[in-house]
Design a protein around this nucleic acid. Sequence first.
DNA 1: AACACTATGTACTGATCGGTACAGACTAAT
DNA 2: ATTAGTCTGTACCGATCAGTACATAGTGTT
Lengths: 206, 206
Amino acid sequence: MSRTVAERADTLPAIAEVFREYGYEGASLSLIGKATGLGKGSLYHFFPGGKEEMAAAVLAEVDAWFEANVYAPLRDGSASMQAIEAMFDAVVSYFKSGRRVCLVGVLALGDARERFGDAIRGYFARWIEALADALIRYGRSRAEAKALAEEVVAGIQGAIVLARALDDPAAFSRTIDRLRVLVRTPSPINLGAAPGPGRRRKGLLR
Amino acid sequence: MSRTVAERADTLPAIAEVFREYGYEGASLSLIGKATGLGKGSLYHFFPGGKEEMAAAVLAEVDAWFEANVYAPLRDGSASMQAIEAMFDAVVSYFKSGRRVCLVGVLALGDARERFGDAIRGYFARWIEALADALIRYGRSRAEAKALAEEVVAGIQGAIVLARALDDPAAFSRTIDRLRVLVRTPSPINLGAAPGPGRRRKGLLR
DNA sequence: AACACTATGTACTGATCGGTACAGACTAAT
DNA sequence: ATTAGTCTGTACCGATCAGTACATAGTGTT
């Protein structure tokens, strides 16, 4: 026995990558063992609940990352549009321009959705809420902000699917850039009616 | 032996549903057997290549459906916006307001992407091309049409992910409706510059 | 140095995996 | 009635699955 002495938290990124690439069903213990360099003994030592506990731990870590690096800045930053721009930057780097897949999205599509329903729902719901919050501070109406936030989060997920499908990371970047424009653009419904927030002087809201 | 006498084509919808729900890895022969009501004997009779051939056949069928019901109308219909509206209607009904998942999207996210790379790429590439074609006929510039088509297709995929994640089919419908508005809306880049196609008289281009 | 505790590899379990082999049963043509 | 060809269920194969058991090796404490 070689005794590398690993910590539970150190294994999570590698495990996450396996779940991302192979999904919940496809992520076998042998793949996870290979990715982490750990045998079953260690894995079941850290995660007595097996695969399900591993996936839950990984989900929690992903959630915590987004909470700290994306949601929180969106919520409490005073410079709302700056926080939104930072969100897009974080997304592009986190998902590696679409080369890396969204774990939560993958789980949402598969049959593991029921098992981790609350975590999956919470991840997206809080993302949309936090983004809507920033958009309201930017000057959008509540309804408009909610709709726009939903559209942006969906767009990001779609961009990942598209980039993977076309095997073209540029498609991801293009879509994200269009979403960047979208959040600064007045609602088409308001065109010709009352001026949307995007029409106000740039310096007024930031 | 009961001898129900099935045809190969009759099994495809049931098999497709299994691949959708469980992904390529998760779709076991026993699940497929249960879904189709067929034993291994019949399955391997129809698909000597096993799972891979089943998935390929299902992909081909999905592709053919979209070709006939979505891409072709987008390409050769003279009423471009009407064809686009019909596309959205078809999408809403095909994906059952997000309750049903896009098989091609699911495969694109998993590790089966490499195996079916060409089919997956073709599905999305032709969708975007056909939609861009209709948008050009509607009056958009080539570049604008391409970008908008990419955004719409990505948006649809994202809407599916979001609706599944939130367990809320209404989220799917809302996103689709916003995309419907988007295709009729002039590009934000052109705002204040030359009038976009959406600003022309309704009767002129249809 | 003796101890408790954490981490680890190995060997095992029963179940299920994809796939093969094949005999039986039905149909259609002769 | 015989034959050929198409479908179907079942028994089986080796491989791999998730998970368990446990002995052992290292670490930190006393």
